[in-house]
Computed example of a mutant assay.
Amino acid sequence: MKIKVAVLLLALLSGCDNSAPVEKGFAGLGGEASAFTPVVPGRVFSFPADHGPHQGFRIEWWYVTANLKDDQGREFGVQWTLFRSALKAAPEVAGWGNQTIWLGHAAVTSATAHHAAERYARGGVGQAGANTAPFNAWIDDWRFSSEATDPLTDLQLSARDKHFGYQLRLVSSRPLVLQGDKGFSQKSEQGQASYYYSQPFFQASGTLEIDGKAYTVSGPAWLDREWSSQPLTADQTGWDWFSLHLNSGAQVMLYRMRQKDGAPYLTGTWIDAQGGTQLLHGDDIRLTPEDTADVAGRSMPVRWSIQIPGKHLDITTTALNPKAWMDLRIPYWEGPVRISGSQGGQGYLEMTGY
């Protein structure tokens, strides 16, 4: 659910327009997008082609999170995201006339520190992009790449900024997971949606630096790939998104899309330890904020109760660092969480629109 980049694009597109603003939902992503390719049910995914960019769609992202520990049990979180956004629904051109904006976000979190950084680039000049053969997604010197024939079996992930850096290897022999209804991930009752697949079974290992100290770390990691043209409605104000690694070996992805009026749109996917999936509907999930923290002048729900009665799951997620505020040009909360209750585990939480 990494679609904050459209805040920047909305500003770029509206900068020369003095007309009264039209309601477009959170980050402008409920705005009209009829010129772009629509998301409809029944898409047949093709790999490795779908690991690369999708021209004709307005926005997409490559998004990795990892829950890591060192040999002393100290916990860390890592995030790496690359966004591609099209300013126009037209075939891309080379050079500075290219109509694509790229944005990178990277962060490292510990129990006592959180650092985030961002990069911007114009398409068409080689500063950022994504290729499939060999797979390489990059912006400046931040990279997510593979030399493997099947690129999502063995990858390198890296980013560096003033206060942090990491170099990780991600490996998995497990199949990819199509989220939602065979990869069609609905975001509203009106039918807004994205194409969405994940690799929630990565194991990460490598080195991490934070505030001048280096650590050797390992732990589970999660990749999300989504692309869409109009994923929200005009009255959706933000979302709360979870990716959870349970100690049983099962994985859970769920999110609620908050609306100005009425109940949030709630859905998710249950992924069993063998990689089998079950679409979760709103009635299958009970998601309740339990505790808040004052973060960057906002009241953020950093402790949640999650119940999925049909799976006998009754857990609480607690932020490793409640102050995990992404203080970037497009601000939001994102950080690792611990899981307790009927099962233990770890995961990631993203909250936007607060």
Score class of each variant (00 low, 15 high):
Q55T: 07
E334N: 05
G97I: 15
S46K: 07
G123L: 14
Y255M: 09
G124F: 10
L155A: 11
L280C: 08
V93E: 11
T37D: 10
V302M: 04
K260P: 04
Q99D: 05
S110L: 11
K187Q: 14
K260T: 12
M326D: 03
K24T: 14
A113Q: 06
V302K: 06
W227V: 01
L279S: 02
D140Q: 07
S218A: 14
H245I: 02
S229T: 15
I3A: 00
F135Y: 15
D224W: 13
F242I: 01
K260M: 11
Y63D: 09
T277P: 10
I315N: 09
D261W: 11
M351G: 04
A66R: 01
W80T: 08
D240V: 13
W241L: 05
D235R: 09
L9F: 05
L103K: 02
P48R: 00
S146D: 00
R286S: 10
L8I: 15
S299L: 13
H114F: 11
H115W: 06
L328E: 02
S198E: 09
K2V: 12
A293F: 03
N131Y: 03
P289C: 15
N136V: 06
G73W: 06
N247S: 11
D284R: 12
A148T: 12
L170K: 10
A20L: 04
D141G: 07
D141H: 11
A106Q: 13
G180E: 13
A296Y: 02
S340I: 00
A11E: 10
M351F: 03
G31C: 13
A11R: 14
F47E: 14
S205Y: 02
Y166Q: 08
R74A: 10
A221I: 06
T132W: 01
T132D: 07
L152Q: 06
E60S: 03
M351V: 15
D240T: 15
G310N: 07
P322E: 06
E75C: 01
T149I: 13
L9R: 06
M300T: 04
R298Y: 03
G297R: 14
V337D: 06
Y348A: 02
T318F: 06
V217H: 05
S145R: 10
A324D: 01
K260L: 10
P231Q: 13
Q156I: 07
G276L: 13
S198L: 15
I339Y: 12
